[in-house]
């Protein structure tokens, strides 16, 4: 069977001088190429977990290995994020003065590809998300679903090992949300990328291969049983 791409052991994180416990000894393994949904109530620690996997935040203790890299000891986490991770946020977070093409290209500016190679990769992805005819449009001219498709293309542009999606359909209507989820799922399969998605919607979570339920900063088996099989 596949070796885990994400291995988390006894991960702890507290905020506000220790008054708020976000993660309380969380353990989790995610296999390469897996599509995992993370569910849990507000404040359970699911977004903190996603931020830890994406090296946007550091734990107080415990260990987190992603694709063989120990994030608790690695110094240059920006390089790791650039090469291994693609983020999709609830709010698309596109740069308003840049057009679709430029927004997707932004993560590539850290790399060494020439302009032609960048253009080819970006155009390929924009075709895959169905926006090849809107490359010169700025985000304010796009619908919510289109903006999220641009954000998905941006997340994939550097060939990451893992896509981390934080409530990617949270700001969309259900029909558009379904389209985005299907697109995410298809691209995860086509690009052979591990997909970890935080959601609080059970029907969204059930599109994944596996659901992980986080409660009080830990993975809860009870919660998973409550949700039933995927």
């Amino acid at each position: 069977m596949n070796k885990p791409i994400i291995q988390i052991k006894d991960l702890k994180k507290r905020y506000d001088h220790g008054k708020i416990t976000a993660l309380n000894g969380l353990n989790l393994n995610i296999k390469r190429g897996e599509f995992v949904s993370i569910m849990g109530p507000s404040g359970s620690g699911k977004s903190t977990l996603l931020n830890m996997i994406g090296a946007l935040d550091t734990p107080d203790s415990g260990q987190i290995m992603v694709n063989g890299i120990d994030l608790t000891v690695k110094k240059d986490l920006s390089q790791f994020r650039s090469q291994e991770i693609g983020f999709v946020f609830q709010m698309h977070n596109l740069i308003p003065n840049l057009n679709v093409l430029e927004n997707v290209k932004i993560p590539m500016l850290e790399g060494n590809l020439n302009s032609k190679q960048m253009e080819n990769r970006v155009m390929g992805l924009l075709k895959a998300v169905g926006l090849e005819d809107k490359i010169r449009q700025t985000p304010n001219k796009l619908s919510g679903g289109e903006r999220q498709r641009v954000a998905i293309a941006r997340a994939l542009v550097n060939h990451p090992s893992i896509i981390l999606a934080d409530e990617p359909t949270g700001s969309l209507d259900s029909k558009t949300g379904d389209i985005i989820l299907k697109l995410l799922r298809n691209l995860h399969e086509q690009e052979n990328v591990t997909l970890v998605m935080v959601t609080h919607e059970p029907y969204v979570a059930k599109m994944a291969d596996r659901i992980v339920y986080v409660l009080d900063g830990r993975v809860s088996k009870k919660g998973e049983q409550m949700l039933g099989p995927v």
Binding site: G54, L56, D76, S78, Q79, F80, R81, S82, Q83, I85, G86, F87, F89, M91, N93, I95, I106, P107, L109, E110, R154, N158
Partner: peptide, 16 residues
């Protein structure tokens, strides 16, 4: 601010 957060999330180094 959010935009700078995004740039960091997509891998831009602090010095960039």
């Amino acid at each position: 601010t959010r935009e700078i957060g995004v740039l960091k999330a997509v891998g831009w180094r602090s010095r960039r």
